[in-house]
Design a protein around this nucleic acid. Structure first.
Length: 668
DNA sequence: CTAGGGTTAG
């Protein structure tokens, strides 16, 4: 079965029938010798010979590629023919100096043909030069080439890439074509502008969507935070004539990871194996990331070990996976192995290694890794590295050092760094630094609810109710938008999502009976709710019920009633879990004899027999590891909100038959 | 006698 697994971006020209010596050409020396022989025999005057030489130097994969040499041969031709012009223009358009193509084009003395313009336009698109692009547009009109499909799609793409979507649209609409590439270019334009609705409109209206159309739409959704839409489209694709390929899987996997939809992820993996799609380092990394972010770190490890080729991203994926599962020693072990295998760690590697240290409380190790990165590797720390370090120091109670680090860093501290410190201040009851940091956060974004909640919880844990009220009042005055917490759980390939006090699920009645039962059993083992975690100051009974109804508890109740005892309950939450939920879930794992895995914003918690893998070291609401930018967070939540009314009351987001095995055409 | 377009992981 055919699967496009090509990852290279270069080209290998077809071996020439006329110049078989190129087949043996391996080194620069060989090349010079061939060139010399051509000169000696006088064949260099044959335009075909020169053209072939240029083609070889200009378009081969590195290390054969040598643009300067190509240009040298080109300039010796007199005059260069159109073919050589096209070759050299194309070569520069693939280079780091794409506008060289335009300059060469403007010096072209022979008449350009339909093969000239795609490269020139591509160069303008790459450089984002609308002016040069428009000039090229003018010239191609003069030559009457505007109806060539390739020229047109490159022309439209040039406008798209230069941000002139309106010009692109005019061209697109004036050319009634069913050429699928042109539709794809327009779709991609809307996706780049974040206008997913417009893109989807085109996709739905396309006469004949190709596999690239599907891929673009799926990756467009996934990269803009519409994970559910991405996967729903991926599912629709199974019913379509287009066969998913390598790119499809790579586009869909990040959405699977974000949602933590393990069954779908396994299906993707199985699909690749079944259809002979090669699990190269790229797809391998995406799968490792998927397994670890879906809670199956051991499967991630297994896959990692089975890969024959690994690149820096593959290593980063497994180290990060181990880090977020709290398996710091294994993360550090793989970090060492990576260096031994000759793969240079990059800045992303260090984020994962520092994360591992911070989650395991390995303060000194973290400090030495940070120093190694800066001093030995000469990498400039990014804000994310500082975030890890502040977290690391802060959690260990070294608040002063953490604050000094923030003052010392060259980057402006972002909210993640400051929130890490604020969380640590709350944990260690340091009002002095906490207020200073909190104030700074509130000044920079008074509408962000996080700092208010942290401050308020800090005051509440010290029973300073006046300050709690003050903070609450400020929050009200500033019309703070609170991020709604939601949790979801995958059962039989269907995703069920819950918000706080959710009653919309079809099995709501059973869920609430289960919650009652849980409450009773918890009482029997002497559990008392930790009411300091509730932001609003309420009477105690209310507080208790508010805690009872946190979305992760509802999801777990649903998991308990809808899966068998052997099944690990895997819940994903968009925020961090509160201390109360954390201790409740520990008890539940013991009472019901269940393994429960919760992925929160930052890491995994493996609950078993009354304890959690995080050793209670990391329960803080404000740090994020899943790199949900604020917009993404909003788009997930707004998606769930907007989708809800349309769906049959609380039907799962995917039907249980979400991923049927494979349809007929997939079977051999 | 060669040649040109759209999708890709941490």
């Amino acid at each position: 079965m055919n699967s496009s697994t090509s990852t290279g971006n270069g080209h290998s020209p077809h071996p020439s029938t006329f110049f078989p010596e190129f087949k043996q050409c391996k080194t620069k020396r060989d090349l010079i010798q061939i060139h010399a022989k051509l000169i000696k025999t006088g064949r260099i005057r044959d335009p075909l010979a020169s053209a072939e030489l240029i083609r070889f130097c200009a378009l081969s994969d590195p290390p054969h590629r040598d643009l300067q040499y190509a240009l040298h041969v080109f300039q010796q031709m007199n005059p260069p023919n159109c073919f050589s012009w096209n070759t050299i223009i194309r070569a520069f358009c693939d280079s780091d100096h794409p506008l060289q193509s335009f300059i060469l084009f403007s010096q072209m003395i022979v008449k350009p043909n339909k093969f000239t313009f795609p490269s020139v336009l591509k160069a303008c698109a790459k450089a984002g030069s609308l002016q040069e692009g428009k000039q090229t547009h003018g010239v191609l009109l003069k030559h009457g080439l505007e109806n060539d499909g390739f020229v047109l799609s490159n022309l439209v793409r040039m406008y798209v890439m230069c941000g002139a979507m309106n010009d692109a649209l005019v061209l697109f609409e004036s050319n009634k074509t069913s050429e699928v590439v042109l539709w794809n270019v327009m779709m991609d334009g809307y996706i780049r502008l974040g206008q997913l609705g417009n893109a989807r409109n085109l996709f739905d209206k396309m006469p004949q969507p190709s596999v690239v159309s599907w891929n673009s739409m799926i990756s467009g959704y996934a990269q803009n935070g519409f994970f559910v839409e991405a996967l729903e489209l991926f599912r629709e694709m199974q019913m379509d004539a287009s066969m998913p390929n390598y790119i499809t899987l790579i586009s869909a996997l990040p959405a699977v990871s974000r949602l933590g939809a393990l069954e779908i992820g396994k299906w993707v993996h199985f699909f690749a194996v079944k259809n002979g799609i090669k699990v190269d380092p790229v797809l391998g990394s995406a799968l490792i990331d998927m397994y670890s972010k879906c809670g199956s770190i051991d499967e991630a490890l297994q896959l990692f070990n089975s890969l024959s080729q690994r690149n820096v991203i593959t290593w980063n994926s497994i180290i990060n996976g181990l880090a977020i599962h709290g398996r710091a020693n294994e993360a550090l072990y793989h970090f060492k192995k990576m260096q031994e295998s000759g793969i240079e760690p990059n800045d992303v590697t260090y984020i994962s290694v520092l994360t591992a240290c911070s989650h395991a409380g390995l303060v000194d190790k973290g400090l030495s890794v940070f120093n190694e990165m800066v001093q030995t590797e000469g990498l400039a720390p990014r804000i994310e590295h500082y975030g890890c370090m502040v977290d690391l120091l802060g959690r260990a109670g070294r608040l002063q050092e953490a604050e000094e680090l923030i003052l010392k860093m060259s980057n402006e501290p972002d909210d993640v760094v400051l929130k890490a410190l604020l969380g640590a201040c709350k944990k260690h009851g340091n009002i002095e630094i906490g207020e200073r940091v909190g104030k700074r956060l509130l000044e920079s974004d008074p509408e962000d609810g996080g700092p208010y909640v942290a401050l308020s919880n800090m005051y509440a844990s010290l029973a300073n109710w006046d300050r709690v009220m003050e903070t609450r009042l400020m929050m009200k005055q500033n019309e703070v938008k609170k991020d709604p917490g939601c949790s979801w759980i995958e059962v039989d390939g269907a995703i069920h999502e819950f918000v706080v006090a959710d009653e919309s699920h079809t099995k709501s009645k059973d869920i609430y009976m289960m919650l009652e039962e849980m409450k009773e059993k918890l009482k029997l083992v002497g559990y008392k709710p930790d009411t300091t975690q509730v932001f609003l100051r309420m009477d105690n009974p209310d507080k208790e019920s508010a805690l009872q109804l946190h979305s992760e508890k509802i999801a777990i109740a649903f998991g308990l009633i809808s899966t068998t005892r052997e099944t690990t309950i895997k819940v994903v939450k968009n925020l961090r879990t509160c201390d109360d939920c954390h201790s409740t879930i520990k008890l539940i794992s013991r009472i019901y004899g269940r393994r429960i895995v919760v992925r929160d914003r930052k890491r995994f918690h493996h609950f078993e027999n009354g304890s959690c893998s995080c050793m209670d070291y990391c329960v803080c609401r404000f740090c994020s590891l899943f790199h949900f930018s604020r917009q993404r967070r909003v788009s997930i939540c707004s998606f769930f909100k907007t989708q809800k009314p349309e769906m049959e009351a609380s039907s799962p987001l995917f039907t249980p038959s979400f991923f049927p095995p494979f349809h007929a055409k997939d079977h051999n």
